[in-house]
Nucleic acid binder design. Structure first.
Lengths: 193, 193
DNA sequence: ACCTTGGTTCAACAAGCGTAGAACGAATGG
DNA sequence: CCATTCGTTCTACGCTTGTTGAACCAAGGT
């Protein structure tokens, strides 16, 4: 019917992709522990054994499903960084890729997910703190990261009442002075000569 | 030896408490799914069956372990609310009770925990939004809640690099302008006559 | 037409889980 | 000193999970 070019390789890649898509969705909705290989297989209308055959284990499947394109890291001056953060946030608020949501969903309960998030946050934070001319640049960077993670979490995963369906732009506008105050220096570093 | 007054009732309450304490710790460290009844029993040096005998099921045990004293809800003017939020945050940053951490740990993967958190956030948010004379009071309240949850999460559960071991007061000071900007009105409600 | 490749399914195992009910044994009360 | 309560342990059932290896069967090459 639909397979005009039904080369086996093509069909194989199709089912592989179908499995991965189902895995992403389920991981994002239920988290690592509550997502079973059997459920992923069922979502892709495939035998559980096939999932294991393509991706070696549940752990490998999770890694494949979650390692999305990590977001563009900001750089530049403090004001530029603030605006870039807000821009990145707008993206995350309008449509966060399912893979990232899967990672976020499991970051509190799955060690591997936590490590991944922690690594990402580290890199992210280094870029941010580099732009803040302050004694506590690192702390400020970590704080703003945590706060923004909280907002994304509250919208997509917890679905907090007025946050889940608000206009992204409104949230951005509300958060702008907040982010600017976090990335702006309060007291400059001591030996700045 | 140690049981000068070894009334059976007392001893019973002791082991019950020991089980509950172990449950809290394990739920806080590993979350609901990864915490097994057997592990809780082992932590209290007790047979698994006894855990089931005192708390009827794993679910009941979790509820008992997590329903902590919910934090004092703020009220008053916008500035007062901001300061109360920061004060509540200071508490949470210095020492969050293990039960609350257990609830936070599982809020993304366990439906019951999510519901509990959502209920708490709702009540919390109502108090906050009542103090904000703004069109988007609800959204602002939800946003500040989400951001602060993110900070607590980043410190205690994710243990973000410079956030986990920072001085709580520093974090508060850094966040003060942020919280004030979130609770302050940007544009007043339309029909305020 | 045959054999082979390779995508896919079948059937099953071992381990771990929550849970239930019988059984034990020391303290209690008459 | 016996009977009983009651805190606690033992044993086991049923189920689900991740994982495996053999088996099936349509497509491809020769």
């Amino acid at each position: 019917m639909k397979q005009v070019t039904d080369s086996r390789a093509q069909r194989r890649r199709d089912t592989q992709a179908r499995i991965l898509a189902g895995a992403r969705t389920l991981f994002a909705e239920r988290g690592y522990e509550r997502t079973t290989i059997r459920a992923v297989a069922a979502a892709a209308t495939v035998d559980p054994g096939l999932v294991m055959h393509y991706y070696r284990s549940k752990e490998h499947l999770f890694v494949q499903a979650t390692q999305g394109e990590l977001p563009p890291l900001p750089g530049g001056s403090a004001e530029q960084v603030a605006e870039q953060l807000l821009d990145r946030l707008r993206q995350s608020l309008t449509e966060e890729p399912t893979g990232s949501l899967a990672l976020l969903r499991s970051m509190l309960t799955h060690p591997e997910a936590a490590r991944e998030i922690l690594d990402g946050a580290r890199a992210h934070k280094d870029r941010i703190s580099a732009a803040i001319p302050d004694d506590q640049a690192d702390l400020r960077a970590a704080t703003v990261s945590a706060a923004l993670i909280g907002v994304i979490l509250g919208r997509h995963l917890l679905q907090l009442d007025h946050l889940a369906d608000a206009d992204p732009q409104q949230i951005i506008d509300i958060l702008r002075p907040c982010v600017r105050s976090l990335t702006a220096a309060d007291r400059p570093p001591r030996d700045s000569r």
